[in-house]
């Protein structure tokens, strides 16, 4: 499973870098809104890590949160 993923990832990366340069369709001077701190997926890492941990220990689902968590399964 992991090997297959790795292959997929690698081929994506190679494929991407082999392409001719793509003209960025959102110009650097048009990124004011995207760069606004309120647009961050993880504005306060200490808070996101904590809340991910709260859910992690009470739900079977795990992973793909893109943030950080911790690990005690206290009932």
């Amino acid at each position: 499973m992991r090997a297959r993923l790795l292959l997929l990832g690698l081929s994506l990366a190679i494929g991407a870098s082999a392409c001719s340069p793509i003209e960025p369709w959102v110009k650097p001077y048009e990124r004011e809104n995207i760069a606004d701190p309120i647009m961050a997926f993880n504005r306060d890492p200490i808070s996101q890590a904590y809340i991910d941990h709260v859910y992690e220990v009470r739900e079977a689902a795990r992973g793909a949160t893109g943030g950080s968590g911790g690990g005690c399964g206290c009932n």
């Binding site: 992690e56 943030g67 950080s68 968590g69 399964g73 206290c74």
Partner: peptide, 9 residues
Amino acid sequence: RVGVALVLA
């Protein structure tokens, strides 16, 4: 209590 794996990204 459960020993849930430590998970950190």
